[in-house]
Amino acid sequence: MSKHVQPPSLVTTLAGIAMDNPVMVASGTFGYGPEYADLVDLNRLGAIVVKGICLEAWNGNNIPRMIEVRGGLINAIGLQGPGVDGFVETYMPFLRQFDTPVIVNIWGRDEAEYEEVAARFDDVDGIAGLELNISCPNVKEGGIAFGTDLTMASDLIGRVRKRTSLPLIPKLAPNVPQVGLFARAAEEAGADAISLINTLPAMVIDIETRRPVLANRVGGLSGPAIHPVAVKQVWEAAQAVSIPVIGMGGIETAADAIEFMIAGASAVAVGTANFTDPTTVVRVIDGMADYLVRHDMATVGELVGSICE
């Protein structure tokens, strides 16, 4: 008779958000949920982070908006989205059908807009938390201007903090010399968790026309090429704060996700790989459970920050 072994627990509570497992989908790579619902069981996801929402409907950038490169892609979508009301009316009734926590990624063109967007979600049923996008490289307004200036980032997070009772998760930019300073500033300004990394500013030029390929000229690099950069930034950020860290950047396999958790992430998010293979999130969840069994760990929490140095 075989010994009965309790399956390992992947249950994670992060910034007060209770999740069945620590594997989420990254903002901008999973739409608002229904786009992938025929292909992925949304109830299996640790959380859904929807595409960035600002106050009013936003058109985004001109095309071309995306180009594949070796080991990833560069996008300059420019945060096209339906605005707060459009999102709540069109997508929340759908999303409320699932048990999966919904985290809304928010952005604004200035501080006041960020505050206003955050405040609007306080009264919306079914929102588990807000991810504060201070690191999008693709819009002139807002975005990365806040995420690469320590004072601006700190000030913005503090202002938004006062306007929302929801868990607040600033998403940090990777292209700063000391990400730990930004992580700590976010914690001190009242963040409940931080997520990183956003895409890395990048560019492709067509050598025949000598024109930038993307209409926006520059965009954000994502995909497996950025994974080691992300692991380093997550590792550094996790040491700087006591709030949970959500690690993301180039996850394609359970091993990639586990690496983030060992580096100090309490949860992870799958991004570009959703495009490559929509079953990635489920494979990562299952692979993480297998890993815990192999390493004789009862809970996924044992993995977090378990790096041996």
Partner: peptide
Amino acid sequence: DKHMGCGVGACLACV
């Protein structure tokens, strides 16, 4: 015919 990303309407590349 536009360069596509996800193919299912999530990424908003092929607009």
